[in-house]
């Protein structure tokens, strides 16, 4: 059995495989996963086909083909999937390797259901998700929750994990 590249721990043939082959995705998340897998497997017909009609002509297939080939697709992590009727928003993190660099990219994609088919509409990169506070300023509240300023309490050299 081939594990599905989307990270579901299910077999490809029981996960993204049938959707890439043309079966409708039951949820927006399933479509999101299958589009990632299509990049990893370089079967971009599926990606182009599942763009909403108003953005399909804007899809730079030649560039996408190059990126699919250049990148080693490491993982997809779905952080949050919200379906509201026929629209959905999915927050996710992809990790890939390109030109000897590992890149972690967080983003939110929007989807819509037309006649029972989930379609991709747009993508917003939100790098604030990947920012982590690693240092406490002298005047910041102390991380020990004492309510005092850090400089009056545990000090400011504390590095947060």
């Amino acid at each position: 059995m081939t594990l599905c590249p989307c990270g579901s721990t299910r077999a490809f043939d029981e996960c993204c495989g049938p959707i890439i082959a043309g079966a409708p995705a039951s949820t927006a998340e399933a479509l999101m996963r299958s589009r990632y897998t299509a990049f990893a497997n370089r079967t971009l017909d599926h990606v182009e086909r599942t763009h909403a009609p108003e953005v399909r002509d804007d899809f730079n297939r030649a560039e996408a083909e190059r990126l699919a080939e250049e990148c080693e697709w490491k993982s997809l992590e779905i952080r949050r999937a919200t379906e509201t009727g026929d629209t959905a928003e999915i927050e996710f993190v992809v990790q890939f390797r390109r030109e000897q660099h590992t890149i972690t990219q967080a983003a939110t994609s929007c989807f819509r259901r037309d006649n029972g088919q989930w379609l991709y509409i747009s993508n917003t990169l939100n790098p604030q998700i990947t920012q982590h506070v690693t240092k406490v300023g002298r005047n910041d509240p102390c991380p020990c929750n004492s309510g005092k300023k850090a400089k009056k309490c545990c000090g400011t050299t504390t590095e947060l994990k």
Partner: peptide
């Protein structure tokens, strides 16, 4: 190099 890959795709599309 990058653009030749893209043009290779487009020239066969």
């Amino acid at each position: 190099l990058n653009w030749s890959k893209e043009m290779a795709y487009l020239s066969q599309a």
